[in-house]
Amino acid sequence: MSRITIIDTDPGIDDAVAILLALVSPEFDVAGITTVAGNIGIDTVTRNAGRILALAGRGDIPVIPGAAAPLSRKGFDTADIHGSDGLGGVTFPEPVSEPLPGPAWTWIADMLDRHPKGTVDILALGPLTNIAMLVRERPESASRIGRLIAMGGAVHERGNVGPRAEFNIAADPEAADIVFRAGLPLVLVPLDVTRRVRATKADTAFLRESGTPAAKASADLVDAYFQSTGSGESRPLHDPCVMLFAMRPDLFELSPLRLSVDCGFGEDAGALGLSDDGPEVSVAMKVLGAEALALLAERLTRPPPPVPDAPASSRN
């Protein structure tokens, strides 16, 4: 049975693959895509969200822009990884409709308030700024979230923007700290898991040969990750792991961990620490990587599902 789902994202190569995966998977009734500055600026990530929806034939799904910057610090520039357009130079059509007025957290809150408590999920693929603003501005609405599954952090793994810091959390540590302490039904998917999910050239060849728009675009996107690594495996497919967990939590192993967030301004800004005083968070610490990749490929190569006759669950 599909669940009403909001995707909060900063597309981003792996974000795009994750969004395409959600759009072809029956577990998700995607009600809207909210954007946050992260991999690149807010105007570009918002346009990219619309471009991804256009490729998937889902211009009926609204895009709502959110935070243009972290709560209290400067963001990162990742054009060296994701390209100047955020999508690795892969060709996507232009959006078929304009974004709705923001801010994203107000739209999210209104969606949560319109539906029974616990029936709307948020899949967070970027910095947690929009979710933190939701907690700050509309805490009663935030308490209605069914599941919040977020990609971010590193527990035992090295960081990817610092010795111990991962990009999404380091981009806005204060936002992560607010969200972790809010008592939401949160599952965190860190580098400890996502680094176990990497595509090979054989994987992208299989996707491309299937001929479906989602599979071909995903193959092109992952190939852009190969170009930036020069190895036999892609960069980790971080964000698709969020969708894969939502679809098949049995492929992952969760651990309840008390976590602190380094909100300083040194090289460990955004690093996670194990702390007796920290809020308890459910953290995915293990994954069956081959099975996860197989599920990703199986879904992306399916024929596109029919577009719903009516917008899902009062999208606007």
Rank of each mutant, 00 (worst) to 15 (best):
L21E: 09
L21F: 12
A22N: 01
A22F: 01
L23H: 01
S25N: 09
S25K: 00
P26S: 14
E27P: 03
T35G: 03
A37L: 08
G38W: 07
I40W: 09
I40C: 03
G41I: 11
G41F: 11
I42F: 11
D43W: 11
T44F: 15
V45S: 13
N48Q: 14
G50F: 06
L53V: 13
G57D: 10
G59A: 15
I61A: 05
I61E: 09
P65Q: 04
G66A: 12
G66D: 11
A67L: 10
R73T: 11
K74I: 15
G75R: 12
A79W: 05
H82D: 11
S84G: 06
D85E: 05
G86A: 10
G89N: 10
T91I: 13
F92V: 04
P93A: 03
E98I: 06
P101Q: 12
P103K: 03
P103F: 05
A104Y: 05
A104K: 03
A104C: 01
A104R: 06
T106S: 04
W107K: 04
I108Y: 00
D110Q: 14
M111G: 06
D113I: 00
R114F: 01
P116W: 01
K117D: 13
G118I: 08
T119W: 02
L123E: 06
A124I: 00
L125F: 14
I131Y: 03
L134C: 02
V135Y: 03
E140L: 11
S141P: 09
S141Y: 07
S143A: 15
